[in-house]
Simulated scan of single mutants.
Amino acid sequence: MSDAPVRLSIQQFATRTGLSADTLRYYEKIGLLRHVARDASGFRVYGPRDLEWVGFILRLKDTGMALDDIIRYAELRERGDSTLAARQALLEDHAARLQDRLERDREHLTALQAKIELYRQQTTA
């Protein structure tokens, strides 16, 4: 994403992020994308900072953070450095939930692997 041109149209930005133009408009509507620049014709234009921010939003989504929490994070981010501690706490809470999920997933994987091994033993005997 670092080799992005300075200005991307909504379609170019959608292609780069893997999101639809409708999703980008929705993110703007709910406050996840703020201060989206417009060109002289009024069309949205996105830059490298927008790519970086959407990449972080997608990472939060991919790791299971609830949309309400992502919106809360965006609101805190918008308010500036006075919210650093609150943003850190929000991310720490999410990281703890993610760690718990990873541990559960490891347990599930171990159980599945044991069942697969049982089937292997029964089918090769």
Rank of each mutant, 00 (worst) to 15 (best):
A21T: 10
K115M: 11
E107N: 01
K29F: 02
G80I: 08
E78I: 00
T17H: 02
L67W: 08
G64C: 12
L32R: 05
A86H: 03
G47D: 15
R34S: 12
G18Y: 05
K29I: 04
Q88D: 04
Q88Y: 09
E92P: 00
A40Y: 02
L67K: 10
H35C: 08
G31W: 09
A125M: 07
R87H: 03
L102S: 05
T63A: 09
D100V: 04
D22R: 15
I57N: 11
A21F: 02
M65C: 12
R120E: 15
D3N: 11
R25K: 06
Y26T: 03
H94P: 06
K29E: 15
Y26K: 05
A66Q: 14
R25T: 03
L109R: 04
G42T: 10
L24E: 01
A114K: 12
R59K: 14
Q12E: 15
D69H: 14
A74R: 09
Q88F: 01
R7S: 05
A114E: 13
Q88P: 00
A21S: 14
T15M: 04
L109Y: 02
S41Q: 14
L91D: 04
M1Y: 02
S20R: 04
A66I: 07
L90C: 10
L67T: 13
D39N: 15
E107C: 00
R79G: 07
Y27A: 11
L91P: 06
T15H: 05
E78G: 08
A85G: 10
D100F: 01
Y46S: 07
G31R: 08
T23G: 06
G55I: 13
Y119K: 12
A89Y: 03
R72C: 09
L118W: 12
L102W: 04
Q99N: 05
L24H: 00
R16F: 01
V36T: 12
V36I: 15
I70N: 10
P48F: 08
E78P: 00
R16S: 02
A37G: 05
L90H: 07
F13P: 03
K115N: 06
I10G: 05
G64E: 13
L33W: 06
H108M: 11
D39R: 07
R79D: 14
D105R: 03
A37E: 15
M65L: 15
L19E: 03
F43W: 13
L76F: 14
R97G: 00
Q121D: 12
R87V: 02
F13E: 01
D39K: 05
T110M: 04
E107Y: 00
Y27T: 06
R38K: 15
L60G: 10
E28H: 12
E103F: 03
M65W: 12
R59A: 12
A86C: 02
R97Y: 01
L91G: 04
D3E: 12
L102I: 15
R44T: 07
R72S: 13
D68F: 03
E117F: 02
A86K: 05
H35Y: 10
K115Q: 07
G31Y: 10
M1C: 00
D68I: 06
D62Q: 14
Q88K: 08
Q121S: 14
R16W: 03
D93Q: 11
V6E: 13
E75W: 01
R16M: 11
L98S: 03
F56K: 12
R34M: 11
E28R: 09
A66N: 11
D81K: 08
F56V: 07
Q99H: 07
G31S: 09
D39C: 02
P48M: 07
D105N: 06
A86G: 03
R97S: 06
L24P: 03
Y73Q: 06
